[in-house]
Design a protein around this nucleic acid. Structure first.
Lengths: 346, 346
DNA sequence: TTGAAAGCGCTAACAG
DNA sequence: CTGTTAGCGCTTTCAA
C-alpha cells in the first residue's frame, strides 16, 4: 500500500498500453474509440478504480457540468418542489446543482450569484425579474447563461420560464367577485424587490377596478411570507371596518396563517370571511376548511427551467420563453358572502 | 473590444507589475504580501474585473470549497428547512452546496454520491445510517470526508449529528399510553433501507411492550411519506377491528394525510381516534385539530451538520458526534380515549 | 517579501 | 482510429 494519491489518466494509459488521449476520448466520446481499445481502457479504469479529476477536467474543458440555482428560500414548499424537479432533470443529463438562497434580499442574491459563478457554475437559474441594475450588469457583462423562472410577462424574453402572476390573480379575483364579494382585502407579499408579489397585487387590484359594481379593495397589507405574519395581517385587516368579505392572500403560507388566526379569534371561514391563497402547496388542501387557491405547476416549471437552461448551455438559441398555466382551485375557504342578500336584484 | 476571454492571473500580474505568485498570495493569504504590493494588486484586479478561474484553482489546490448534500427529498419540509440552514452556514464560510436527492432509494444514493464527488465535492452530508455495503465501501476507500445526519444512536461515531429517533418515539408513545390508550396502531415510514423509520417503529413498539397493562400495537402499516398514503393507511387501519384508539405516525406528512382522510370518512379526531405525528413541520400546527407531534430541531441540525463537516474538512478530528434533542408537542389531535371509562379503577 | 518555475490532470488540435 | 503535444490558470516550493 504505497499508493498515496488517486490514479490519473496517465496511470490508466500506462496500464492499458494506450495514450492518455484515447482514454479521454473513451470517456467523453466513446464512439471515437475502437471497441477493442475501449475494452482495454475500461478494464484498466476498473482495475485502478480511476475517477476523472474534476479540476483537471474543468480547467482543460472550461466547463464543470454544474449549474447554480439562486432562490429566495427552500422553506417554502413552492420552491422546494420546483427545485426538486429542476435537480432531477439536471441529474439525468449528468449535470449537478449548486444551490444558494437569498432570503428575498437582492444584495444577497448578487452575492450568491457571484459565489456560484466563482464555484464554477456553467449557468444559473434565477427566480423572478426584479433585480437591481448592478445584478443585471453582472449577468450581462459576464455573459452568464441563465434562465429566469417563476414569472412570465407578455413581453417575456427567451430566457423566461414561468406563469403570469398578474393574470393568475386577475382570474382568481374574478371568481371571488362573481360569487358576490364586493369588499375585498389583500394580504400581499412584500412587493419591494419582488416582482411576483407586485404582479399579484396588480392583478387583484385591476380585476376589482375592471369589475365595477361597487367592488373595492378595502385594504391591502404587505407581509413577509410566514405563517405568523399572515395571521398578524389578518387580524389587522379584520379589526377595522368595514370588514372585507373576502381576503386574497399573496400565497398559501399567508393564507394558512390567516386561517389559523381566524380560528383563534373565533372568526368563521368562510362564514364571516372568505380566504384565497396562491401556489397550491400541499398545505392548502390539508387545512380546514381547504384553501381555495391558484395551482401553480411547480414541478413542471422546475423541469422546464432545467430543460431550457441545458439547451442554452449546449448552444441552442430557441426553446424559450416557456409559459406555463395556472388554474384556480375553488375550495371550501371561499363561499358567497353572507351579506350577498344586500345586493340589489338585477 | 477585442478581449475575448476572462482576465487571468497573468494579466493581473502584468498590469500590477508583480509576479503571479504574489497575486495568488494576496488572494489566499494577504498577510504574506506587503501593503504597497497588495494595493497595486488590488487596483489591478479591480481594473480588470478579475475573478479567479475555478478549474485552475481546483486543479492546483486540489480543493473546490464545495460540499455536497445527498438527501431523500426536498419535498418534505423537514429536509428543506434543514438544508436551508446547512447552506447558510456553509455560505458564511465561503463554501457552496451541491445538492442531490435520492427519493429514498439507496442505489440512487450511491449514484448521487459518486456524481457529487465527480463534480468536485470536498465532502458530503448524508442522511441516516442505513446504506448498503457498496456505498460504505465507496465512502471508505475514497476516504470521503462526510457527516451523517438525522440520526443518532448511543454508539454514534464522531461523524454523526442528529437525534435518537427510537428514544424520541419511545417517549412520545409513553405520553400516549399515559393518557389511557391501550390499543395503538402505527403508520410507519417504509422501514426497508431507512434506519430512521425503523428506529421510530422500534421506539413505539418497545414503549408499548415495556408499559404492559394490556397495551398492544394492534396494527402497523408501512407507507411512503406522502399525504395520500397516510390516508390510505389510516383507512386500512380503521376498517379493521379492533380499532385502535390512537395512531402514531412515522412523520407529520403521514399524520396530516391520516387526518384529512379521517375528515373525509367522518371519523372524529381525537374523539374517535387520536393521532400523533413526528418532525413538527409547519403543517402540524396549522391543521385542525393541530397535530400532536415530536419537535425535531431541523434548523439546528442543519447548522451543526455544516459546522461539523467544515471542521472535518479543515482537518479537525473532534467536534462530533453531536446529539440534538427532541421534544414531545402535545396538541389537540391527542386526547384520552373515549373508552377510558372501560378501564378498571386502581 | 518577492519571483521563477514546476507542475496539478485533463482536453483538444493536429499529425500520423 | 490513435498518439503527440501544447496548453488551461492556478498554487506552491525553492531561491533570491
Amino acid at each position: 500500500m504505497t499508493k498515496i494519491s488517486a490514479p490519473t489518466l496517465e496511470d490508466v494509459a500506462r496500464l492499458a498500453g494506450v495514450s492518455t488521449a484515447s482514454i479521454s476520448r473513451a470517456l467523453n466520446d466513446p464512439d471515437k474509440v475502437a471497441k477493442p481499445t475501449r475494452d482495454k481502457i475500461e478494464a484498466a479504469i476498473e482495475a485502478l478504480g480511476y475517477t476523472p479529476n474534476f479540476g483537471g477536467r474543468a480547467l482543460a474543458s472550461n466547463r464543470t457540468n454544474t449549474v447554480g440555482a439562486v432562490v429566495p428560500t427552500m422553506a417554502n414548499a413552492m420552491f422546494a418542489s420546483g427545485l426538486q424537479a429542476f435537480q432531477e432533470v439536471l441529474s439525468e443529463a449528468g449535470v449537478n446543482l449548486l444551490l444558494a438562497t437569498t432570503g428575498y434580499d437582492s444584495e444577497q442574491e448578487l452575492r450568491q450569484i457571484k459565489a456560484l459563478m466563482a464555484h464554477g457554475a456553467d449557468g444559473l437559474m434565477l427566480i423572478g425579474d426584479a433585480r437591481p441594475q448592478s445584478t443585471r450588469d453582472f449577468l450581462e457583462k459576464r455573459r452568464i447563461p441563465h434562465v429566469i423562472s417563476w414569472c412570465f410577462q407578455p413581453d417575456a424574453s427567451p430566457i423566461h420560464v414561468g406563469f403570469d402572476n398578474r393574470a393568475a390573480c386577475y382570474a382568481a379575483t374574478q371568481h371571488v367577485l362573481e360569487l358576490g364579494h364586493r369588499r375585498i382585502a389583500m394580504i400581499c407579499g412584500v412587493r419591494q424587490g419582488n416582482d411576483r408579489a407586485a404582479d399579484r397585487f396588480d392583478g387583484v387590484s385591476a380585476a376589482i377596478d375592471d369589475f365595477g359594481q361597487g367592488a373595492a379593495m378595502v385594504r391591502a397589507v404587505d407581509a413577509q411570507y410566514r405563517l405568523e405574519f399572515g395571521g398578524d395581517a389578518f387580524e389587522k385587516i379584520m379589526s377595522q371596518s368595514p370588514r372585507p368579505t373576502a381576503i386574497i392572500c399573496g400565497n398559501d403560507v399567508l393564507a394558512a396563517g390567516a386561517l389559523k388566526r381566524a380560528r383563534e379569534l373565533g372568526i368563521d371561514v368562510p362564514g364571516d370571511v372568505s380566504l384565497v391563497g396562491f401556489d397550491d402547496i400541499g398545505l392548502a388542501s390539508v387545512v380546514t376548511p381547504a384553501l381555495a387557491t391558484v395551482r401553480v405547476p411547480q414541478i413542471e416549471m422546475g423541469r422546464e427551467a432545467a430543460r431550457l437552461l441545458l439547451a442554452r448551455l449546449s448552444g441552442e438559441e430557441g426553446g424559450g420563453p416557456v409559459e406555463l398555466h395556472t388554474e384556480f382551485m375553488p375550495r371550501a375557504s371561499l363561499a358567497p358572502p353572507a351579506q350577498a342578500v344586500d345586493q340589489p336584484e338585477p
